[in-house]
Amino acid sequence: MNVKIVLIPCMGCEKNIGKIGTLAALSLEKSKKFPFLRLNPSITQIAAGEYTSFSPETLIIALNCCNVRCSTKILNQKSIKPHYLINISKYLKDINIPKGDYSIHELLKDSSVSIITECLSNEIEEYVIQFTHKHEENSVIKVNEPSNSKTSFTFTPNYSKMLEFTFSKFKFQVPINPNRLFFNWNDAWAYYLGEGKVVIGITDYLQKNLSDILICEFNEIGTNISQFEAVAEMESSKTVNEVLSPFSGKIIAVNTKLEEAPELINEDPYNNGWIVVLECNNFEEESSELMSSEEYFNFMKEKIEQEGIYQ
């Protein structure tokens, strides 16, 4: 298959990292390693129609350099859904970015440009392989479903019923399981699996407020999380949001299906849209600080009635 790539960098000049990201994208184009079709964000605004008429072999990548996510927003303005989002701020843990006011020409000489270019090149290369495989899998008749060890955990919660609240056109649901389901004040739920393990996700209220979720990035398996620290970060067409953990503990599984289909969180927030599994440090004590389904439902109902809905 002949993949073509449309890479949309943010072209940000606000921060050094924005300039460096743009330089890395241009340097990647110069290397001719990938078949780039477009590399200019303004084209999305001028000729948006072109983007919807690309062949299925065209891979649209949004390259964000910081959490302002200009690139995602530019594409979103024209309802263009990228296949893949890259945020190079994740590489910054190990790279020193120059501080202070530097022009794009001065930064060109900085070693961080070549390092970021390499990281970017590797990430795009990896995704192109995935993208190609996906297309090939779709084009042949599958004999056996490939097994994926990462997604071996299957979440089958038991909810006795759903509480439902309607306010104007806004409707939100909260499932009930008196012994297993807990909620925090930041719209995350935790479902107790037994043996100190919980599944974590976000509530129907939060997914509706976020609107279409475009990407869900987890902390890695094995990461230790404090209570109310982020287990994952989500980008939606409207905003960025962290999933704040109701419990402290270690991440032992992540829902890798969300990498391909983050919309599962919107479609089914309490089942298939689960986000991570946590091995709790202190389940008994921390669960006593959280809300039950009814408490969360009443809390949200009162909040919405008093404050309205943010849109």
Partner: peptide
Amino acid sequence: CVVFCQACLKMCPKDALIFQEKKKVL
């Protein structure tokens, strides 16, 4: 401000917002 929310910090172009440590507030 929503307790433990740091979304504004994430989107600030200049990283110009500071919050207390979560564990201290907890």
